[in-house]
Each structure stands twice: as structure tokens, then as C-alpha cells.
Computed example of a mutant assay.
Amino acid sequence: MTATRPQGGSVFLVEDEVMIRMMVADMLEELGFSVAAQAGEINEAMRLAESADFDVAILDVNVNGKVISPVAELIRARNRPFIFATGYGSSGLPEEYRDRPALQKPFQLETLARMLDRALSQRLN
């Protein structure tokens, strides 16, 4: 099985389920990305969104029952691309972010690669 290889880079990963976070981190490494920072709760994610150095973020929409919007706002203010990950589809996204890319959980390696490639290429344009 061959996945399309995005150009690589560093990823900020926010996911409250430890096993899912570990699985996504493994997928990212397989695609040639490094995990620059990761968080499993909103306050930690907000702190890292302001201070961590990363190229793109993957944000779980619902983190321990809290919506990810404050973290997304911080990342948008830094002009960094981000992708949502959700089990609820685009209707599960915060209303102000329904135009943003969303990975439907569970997702495959190829889907993750395409979304990252698209997010990073839009940043360059």
C-alpha cells in the first residue's frame, strides 16, 4: 500500500482520547511529519496553540466535552492552517468553522495525507 506523501512538516495534535492520539501520531510519522506538540485538554491546547512552533494543527472538535473553538481561534490568529477531526461530520463543526476541512473519524492514512497536503498547500498560496 502506497500513500501519497505530503511535503512533511510539524503538527500540533489535539485529541482527548489517548489511544486515538497515539494512533494519529503514528500515522503522521509514517507520512513523514513530526508531532511538534500534543494536548488532551483545552487549557493545555490553548497554551500550546499560542507558544508551540508547528506548521499545521489537527484539532478534535470535542475535547472532554468542550468545544475546540478557543484553540482554533488562537491558531487562526497565528495564521496557521488547521484541520478538524470529528466523529460527527461537518455538521459537528462549530458554526463559524463549517468552511474548514474536517476529517471524519475514523479516517485512513490516505485521507489524512490528502487533508494535510491540501491544508499546507493552501497556506503557501
Rank of each mutant, 00 (worst) to 15 (best):
F82N: 11
T4S: 10
S90G: 11
P70C: 09
I20W: 02
L93I: 01
D53Y: 07
E41M: 04
R114W: 12
L103F: 05
V35A: 07
F12W: 06
N79W: 09
R123A: 15
T111K: 10
P70M: 07
D16G: 00
I75C: 10
E50T: 08
F54W: 05
S69Y: 01
P101M: 06
G9T: 08
N43W: 09
E73P: 11
G87E: 02
T86G: 03
V61D: 03
L109N: 00
R76Y: 06
R21Q: 12
L124E: 13
N62T: 02
Q108V: 11
G8H: 02
P81L: 09
V61I: 15
G8I: 04
L112S: 08
V61E: 08
M23H: 11
E44M: 10
L109W: 01
I83C: 07
F107Q: 09
D117S: 15
E41C: 06
I83G: 03
M27Q: 03
M27E: 04
N125M: 13
A85Y: 02
A52W: 12
E73H: 12
L120V: 11
Y97M: 04
L116Y: 07
S91W: 05
A25C: 05
E41T: 02
V14L: 14
Q122L: 15
A49V: 01
E96C: 08
R118H: 12
S91I: 11
E110I: 05
S90K: 04
M1H: 12
T4R: 08
E96Y: 11
A57K: 02
P101G: 03
L109S: 04
M23R: 13
V61F: 15
D53W: 08
R123V: 08
E30A: 12
R21Y: 10
I68P: 03
A36H: 12
I75S: 08
V14E: 01
R123G: 11
Q108F: 10
A57F: 02
V14R: 00
E17S: 01
R21V: 01
I20C: 07
F54I: 04
F107G: 10
K66R: 04
A102L: 02
V24C: 07
R80N: 06
I42E: 06
R21K: 14
A72C: 08
L59A: 01
N64S: 12
L48W: 13
V35S: 13
L93S: 01
L48R: 14
G87I: 01
G87H: 00
V63S: 00
D53V: 10
T86P: 01
L93T: 00
I20F: 01
L124C: 11
A85E: 02
F107R: 10
E15D: 06
S34V: 09
R5Q: 13
N64K: 15
M23Y: 14
E41V: 05
M23T: 13
G9V: 07
